[in-house]
Design a protein around this nucleic acid. Structure first.
Lengths: 145, 145
DNA sequence: GTGGTTGCAAATCCTTTGCAGACCT
DNA sequence: AGGTCTGCAAAGGATTTGCAACCAC
């Protein structure tokens, strides 16, 4: 897994890539699966092949415009639009292991706690990336049941 | 998802279930994929069918003897032996997004930070489960590259 | 014009399921 | 004996890949 070669990927601005990005950006807080994107674009009368969606998402992820999550015990990856780095650095994800819902939240308290986690002594110089970290648990609704 | 019916599942003490649990327990800190378990048991001359491994892991997970993780951008679920609840409550997972390695760590500092996270005001009464949460980032080796 | 991109279909990979026979209790 | 569990093979779902036609630059 070398870094070489990463730059030669996808630079062209195609209709499909725009459509996919538009779709994600249309609800920037939400997480979409590849299938959902395919369906949404189909319903908008601008269908894009599923393989193209996967390929474009991979490219967009590499370029940082989209973030990929593997949220759970469920089956498929989710993709989320990255509005801008700053915004993303300041909120965290909570994912309900029961219903799969993902909520965002931010709080000064959490920010501090996270800073502590980041700076804590970790084995082998591990560096924690807050933007990728997802907290798992149960949402209020599911807990109530 | 009610609790009813959970008890009627798998209670028989079969050779295969023991083998699988032994395999997981032989390196209790490690995470195994279903495939790894199949390979290990095969190499030990006590092969177990892949479908049996999946079925047993599901049962063992339900009974709490094994924990299932969906660690990442990678493809398959990982299973870990649950030595005892206390041990598990006190360490956290760091997963390297580049090489996929998972390391455990514990620290008083992190424990405190995590307490803060747990008690922080979260949307909709979300309850964070530390044992399921995985911190993503880069391990020392990958960062060095 | 040229090479990255797309769409389609086939291929892969992981996981689940159906079913007949084997095994636990 | 009787129901549960196993193994095998086939099914299923998500994602990737091969390839010819297509389109952005």
């Amino acid at each position: 897994m070398t870094d070489a070669g990463k730059q030669k990927r996808a630079c062209r601005n195609t209709r499909q890539k725009k459509l996919i990005l538009d779709c994600l950006a249309s609800d920037a807080g939400r997480h979409f699966t590849a299938d959902e994107i395919v369906d949404i674009l189909k319903s908008r009368r601008t269908p894009v092949a599923k393989s193209t969606v996967y390929r474009s998402l991979a490219v967009l992820e590499e370029s940082g415009e989209v973030r990929k999550y593997f949220l759970s015990e469920f089956n498929s990856a989710c993709y989320q639009f990255v509005a801008d780095a700053k915004t993303c650095a300041e909120h965290y994800h909570l994912m309900c292991v029961l219903c799969g819902k993902v909520v965002h939240f931010e709080s000064a308290e959490l920010g501090r706690a996270f800073q502590e986690i980041k700076s804590a002594q970790k084995p082998g110089g591990f560096f924690v990336d807050g933007r990728r970290t997802v907290f798992y648990g149960q949402c209020g609704e599911c807990s109530a049941k």
